[in-house]
Every structure is written in structure tokens, then in C-alpha cells.
Design a protein around this nucleic acid. Structure first.
Lengths: 209, 209
DNA sequence: ATTTACATACGTTCAGGTATGTATATAATC
DNA sequence: GATTATATACATACCTGAACGTATGTAAAT
């Protein structure tokens, strides 16, 4: 059936994105064919090639549709909060609570970490992921730097220490997500929060509990 | 040229493994063809199929050849050391120093983390990786548990806390490796060691420096 | 003599891409 | 407001290369 209305076209676009994410997480990006995606979305390859140029474009669309909103929400949360350890922990907890409650977000992270080969054109995707992490680290650093003197156990440390601290924090988050996605044991937001407490305390900040 | 001697056959086997690792890290596992590997090793597909059943078997051979020795060395190091924070840090530093000095080990980790889709038969590989990490965590836990009272800042914590601590430690290591492999910035063993210090201190252990 | 350690050749499947068909929504024109 | 024109949103069919696997050949080691 040719020539749907604009809204119907957007529907099929979203259906393609959704099916792609589902199939990517099941079969991997490289082993998912464009016809697999099209079929699962109830259309043909013609529809796919109308909306997207290739697999990479779908993955980018998936990112825009599913991952970006949470990233931006968490970022804005941190930017509006008053800098404190409690608020830092809360923002991180918010991120992982939202993540673990969304099948789509879980599937997305699975694809990014386990079902995608970062080579050729896809290496750009890894680079962007790298930039995102670097940005997150900078936000952590700024947030910690802006904290009041009262948040620290001892005297305020230098910038290098805060950078090392925020980097360690970020690495533990990535590693924690990695570990949870493979084992699915425990509650992601809780284990991560626990790790954050340990690290912030080890970095010289006051942490209650 | 048919029918080489046993040693020559082992040579081509190792050449295939080496070429496979190289190509996997460049082009990704899925996008590397068996003829690519064979050609790079200076043989034909016939030689490949004589030594291996499929791609998965090569990857397993690569693991045996390159990754296992370091894992076992680090593990044995921990088992023979007297439990202390300094020795824990030293064992971890040893692991990552060895890693960052070997192109092959770096390539292997790159393949495992970024150039491999864990689906179908390859999901078994991810499961084994999971088991390895779980084993590492247990070793960390045991090592920390066996530590002398003098190693702690305060009273000795309960088992649950030590488990959370070792898990956080492991997650930070994985995340740190992840981060270093993407950015290649700084010296892996140093940044990781720094992270370990922060975490152990946050976990309640005495850390010098 | 037989097995080994490959080389060569082939068949089959299958994925990506393209070219083209087509019915309808939408815009343009009168 | 009716007609026409055009762009849209796909469906269908085909073409191409290529990768996997397999079957078979073969010369030397054992």
C-alpha cells in the first residue's frame, strides 16, 4: 500500500526503530539483516531504505529515540541541583533507576556493550560514546568542584584529585552497568549507589550512612 | 605444499591464531572472513578448516594462547601473597602493567570489549567472561577477608561489605580498562592503581599515600 | 601404505543494494 | 471546488558479490 499520510509514515519509522533495537539485542547488529528489521516492523525493505540509509543510521536513530532523553534529563538534573554528595548520589540513582525500569533502555545498553562491533563506520559510534563519557566526567568534576567546604572530610583537595575521583566514579558506573547486564543479579541502582558511596568516601567526601 | 612436519603444522596454527587476533581487532570478528585470516597467515582456507572448526574455535584458541597465562599468573600471585592492601594493589598493578606492555593482550581486550557480538554461539564466550569476573571477585573477597586487623581503619566490617567493596573494585577495573582502551590517554596501570587506592580507602582499609 | 597437512575448486546461500512500479496524499492551478 | 500534477511512502523484483562450507586432490611425513 503506497503513500501513507505523514503520521502513518512516522509510525512505520518508529516501528522500524523499535524492531531494530529488539533484533539487535537478540541477534546482534552484524547478524541482523535489513529484511529481518523490515519484516518485524510489518513492512518491506523498500520501507527501510526509504527511512534509513543503512544500519548505522538506524542505530543513530535508536540512540536519539531512546538513550538521549535520559542522558539529557540526568545532565539537566545535575546542572540545576545544588552541589552536594547527597545530590550527586541522587542524580546517579535516578539515572540507573530509570534505566533498569525500561526494557528498551536495557536493550539499548546491551546492544552498545555486547551486540555491536565498533569497526569501520561504527567506530564513529564508539567515538561519540567516548565523548559522552568524557562529558559526563567533566560534569561530575564540575559538580564536585562546586561543592561546599562542608562536604569534605578534610581540606579541599586539588583539581587533579577531583579529576581522578570523578574518573574513578565514572569507571565504576560503566563497570557496574557492564556487570549487571551480564549477570542481572541484584538491583542495578542499589549496587551502583553502594559503589558510589564507597568511592566518594574514599575520595575524601562526607557520605552519610 | 602438503604434509608439513608436526612442528611446522603448529607454526601455521599459531600463525592463524596470531593473524586472527590482528584482523579481529582491526575489522571486528563478524566482518573478518576465514579467508582473510588464512591469507594473512600465508595459507589457504583448507589449512584453517584443518586446524579449527569455525571462528569461535579460533577465538577460544586466542584466549588460551594470549589471555589465560596472565590471568593465571595474577591469580597465583594473589594466592601466594600475604593478604594486605599493599599486596593487593601490587597484584593489580602487575596485571595492568603486563597488559599495557603487550600489543597482543591489548588487541585481545579490544576484541573482547569492542569487536565482538555476543550472540548465538558467542554468547557462551560472554558467559565464560562473566564466570571469570565472578571468580576474580571471589579471589578479591577472600584476599581482603584474610587481611590482618591492622589493615583496617576501624573495626573489621562484615562479609556483605567486603563483597560490595570487591565488586566495586572489580567494576572500576573493568570500567578503567574500558576507558583506557577507548581513549588511550594516560598510563593504564597508574590510573587504575589510583582508582584502587580511592576505593580501598573508601571501603575502610588503610592505604598509604 | 596410510595418514597428515594442507591446496584448490565449487556449490549454495544470503545479505546489501538498486531499479522500478504504484497508489495515494498533497500541492498547484484554474 | 474540481482537476491536474507531482512528490511521497512504500512494495516488488532483481542483481551482485561474497562468505561459508564441503568435496576432492595431493605430496610428503610416518
Amino acid at each position: 500500500m503506497p503513500r501513507r499520510t505523514k503520521e502513518e509514515a512516522e509510525q512505520t519509522r518508529l516501528a522500524l526503530i523499535k524492531s531494530a533495537l529488539q533484533l539487535f539485542s537478540e541477534k546482534g547488529v552484524a547478524h541482523t539483516t535489513l529484511m529481518d528489521i523490515s519484516k518485524a516492523a510489518g513492512v518491506t525493505k523498500g520501507a527501510f531504505y526509504w527511512h534509513f540509509k543503512n544500519k548505522l543510521e538506524v542505530l543513530e536513530a535508536i540512540t536519539q529515540e531512546y538513550a538521549l532523553p535520559l542522558d539529557e534529563a540526568a545532565q539537566q538534573k545535575l546542572e540545576t541541583m545544588t552541589p552536594s554528595t547527597a545530590n550527586l548520589i541522587e542524580a546517579i540513582t535516578f539515572y540507573f533507576e530509570t534505566l533498569e525500569q525500561s526494557e528498551a533502555l536495557i536493550a539499548f545498553q546491551e546492544v552498545i556493550l555486547f551486540k555491536c562491533e565498533y569497526t569501520d563506520e561504527f567506530s564513529a559510534l564508539l567515538k561519540r560514546d567516548k565523548d559522552d563519557l568524557e562529558k559526563a566526567r567533566e560534569i561530575f568534576s564540575a559538580f564536585i568542584t562546586d561543592m561546599d567546604e562542608s562536604q569534605w572530610q578534610g581540606p579541599r583537595p586539588d583539581a587533579a584529585h577531583i579529576e581522578a575521583l570523578s574518573q574513578t566514579l565514572l569507571n565504576a558506573l560503566v563497570g557496574g552497568l557492564f556487570q549487571w547486564l551480564t549477570t542481572r543479579q541484584g538491583i542495578l541502582s542499589q549496587t551502583v549507589t553502594q559503589a558510589v558511596r564507597i568511592i566518594l568516601r574514599g575520595g575524601g567526601l562526607k557520605v552519610d550512612g
